[in-house]
Write a protein that binds this DNA or RNA. Structure first.
Length: 497
RNA sequence: GGUCCCAUCGUCUAGGGGUCAGGACACCGCUCUUUCAAGGCGGCGGCACGGGUUCGAAUCCCGUUGGGACCGCCA
């Protein structure tokens, strides 16, 4: 084994790529990149029944969205391929034969049903529900008998019965498991496919993986892996078991926790660079008080020693805040480019804007970015920049649009705007304040109804700056239309339940 | 049921024998006055519990409690 660090991300293409998987992938990537090593992507599709092509695409999509790349993998090859376990069956078979010949593994003829039944009985008696070793010392003759009965065997590893298995974990420390309480695990299924335990150990060794970084759900499995490595005469990689990520109720992340697939966060409007930061801060800390860290800063500060042992809860509020921080840092043009697809999808903007429209959009998102937390916020809160068909919110109706003096104010403002020479924030502000003075009221008495009329809401960025970005004739039309509706009594609060 | 892991504000965490137990998100209040969903300022809030060891424990040890993972021909 060379000194070069080699880590791997080994997802199984079943179901979606959730936050926990992404977290593990990121930490493997960080570790390898930090120390100038290689990242291997290996597909663990030894579950013949549940592996799907779609799930595989989701994995590629998730990793590339996050900017996690790999040096070797199914798509790009490498010296240790193939990188898909279902294509490595002959390799596993070779190792199984070795184990069988050495008596370190044996054929088990029990059916899954039979094993499960006996496990059930053990559970009922309060015993650990492990394999009872029924087939561990079958004679040649008995084996033939079983075959005659029509049984096909799976292969089990003969685990040690005495002593302890000690795991030296870079994060969890030294963990000891007694050898007397682990049943013999299946390493090769009847189907001829290896089980996870076997494939993982064989491939990590064959692929020269130096550091296994995975979720701590695998800690107990490591007992099997270590013994398997010894039986096979393979080296032990270094192990680091990362703490899990839990839902708000402190249980394992699952569908009922809302967004579980990493791509759902993309849809929600998270920036990938923010997501990386969010993920990095779960179970790890730079050791100082920084919260917003670029990928480079994370790489710089990263270490396994900085990882905590305790499981963490994904805090969606903090995630949103962090995403907002990232959006504020983006150049307006960049932010516009990222928001654009969503606007197109919502039917609010053309697919191929002119340079002028891009510039205009940059202005819009720049105005909104102080309070936006997600890319999707722009679609939700800024519709009035793109269309006249925005909704008049109840709060706006109640506070301003249903007020008796409002129609007159709006019309006076429309007149004043029409008479205005220029159309920029400064002139607009001047006009508004002038009108307020003429009417003998505070500026707010004009500003608020105007905002309510032109945007349909009571909150938003600087009124003068947002008006500047909407064509004057549209603003005037909106003011007149709203005045009319208001006068007709159609803008009373709806009091939706 | 057995085994293993974990335990600092609601959440993410810093802190690893002597700290006013620090920060961030959230929350609350005040403020700005052109609104808040933004900004500024401030506040509330924590070492799970019980025993040790020690001059001194959030920190080390033991136990209790709570949570989690594993005990699959799933990974």
């Amino acid at each position: 084994m060379s000194d070069r660090i080699r880590t791997r991300f080994a997802p199984s293409p079943t179901g979606s790529m959730h936050v926990g998987n992404a977290h593990t992938a990121l930490f493997n990537w960080l570790y390898a990149r930090k120390y100038g090593g290689d990242v291997v992507l290996r597909i663990e599709d030894t579950d013949e029944l549940r592996s799907t092509r779609e799930a595989l695409d989701v994995i590629y999509g998730g990793l590339s969205w996050l900017g996690i790349d790999w040096d070797e993998g199914p798509d790009r090859g490498g010296p240790y391929g193939p990188y898909v376990q279902s294509e490595r069956l002959d390799i596993y078979q070779k190792h199984v034969d070795e184990l069988l010949a050495a008596g370190k593994a044996y054929r088990c003829y029990c059916t899954p049903d039979e094993v499960e039944q006996r496990r059930e009985i053990m559970r009922a008696r309060g015993l650990p529900p492990r394999y009872d070793g029924k087939c561990e010392s079958l004679t040649e003759h008995q084996c033939e008998q079983m075959v005659t009965e029509g049984r096909t065997p799976c292969i089990r590893l003969r685990m040690k019965r005495t002593g302890n298995t000690v795991i030296h974990d870079r994060i969890q420390g030294e963990v000891v498991y007694g050898n007397d309480l682990c049943g013999d695990p299946v390493i090769m299924k009847v189907s001829g496919f290896p089980t996870y335990h076997f494939a993982v150990v064989v491939d990590d060794a064959e692929m020269g993986i130096t550091d296994v970084i995975r979720g701590d759900g695998h800690l107990p499995n490591t007992q099997i892996h270590l013994q398997l490595q010894e039986a096979l005469g393979l080296p032990h990689p270094r192990y680091a078991h990362l703490p899990m990520i839990l839902g708000e109720d402190r249980t394992k992340l699952s569908k009922r926790h809302g967004a579980v697939s990493i791509m759902e966060y993309q849809e929600l409007g998270y920036l990938p660079e923010a997501m990386v930061n969010i993920l990095a801060l779960l179970g790890w800390s730079p050791g100082d008080e920084r919260e917003v860290l670029s990928r480079e800063e994370i790489l710089e500060a990263f270490s396994l020693e900085g990882c905590s042992k305790a499981a963490s809860v994904f805090d969606i509020k903090k995630a949103e805040w962090l995403n907002g921080e990232y959006m504020k840092q983006l150049a307006p043009e960049d932010l516009a480019r990222r928001v654009h697809p969503r606007l197109v999808e919502a039917g609010l903007m053309e697919a191929e804007p002119t340079p002028e429209r891009w510039e205009w959009l940059a202005g819009v998102v720049d105005l909104m970015k102080e309070r936006a937390k997600l890319l999707s916020t722009y679609v939700q809160w800024a519709a009035y920049f793109f269309t006249d068909e925005y909704d008049y919110e109840d709060r706006a109706r109640e506070k301003w649009l249903s007020k008796e003096e409002t129609p007159a104010t709006l019309e006076a403002l429309a007149d004043a705007f029409e008479a205005l020479g220029a159309w920029d924030a400064v002139s607009i502000e001047g006009t508004v304040r002038e009108l307020a003075e003429t009417l003998g009221v505070g500026a707010g008495k004009v500003i608020h109804p105007c905002r309510a009329a032109v945007t349909g809401t009571t909150v938003g960025p600087s009124l003068f700056h947002l008006l500047e970005l909407i064509p004057r004739e549209d603003v005037v039309a909106r003011l007149r239309r709203t005045a009319e509706l208001s006068r007709a009594g159609q803008l009373a609060p709806r009091d939706a339940e």
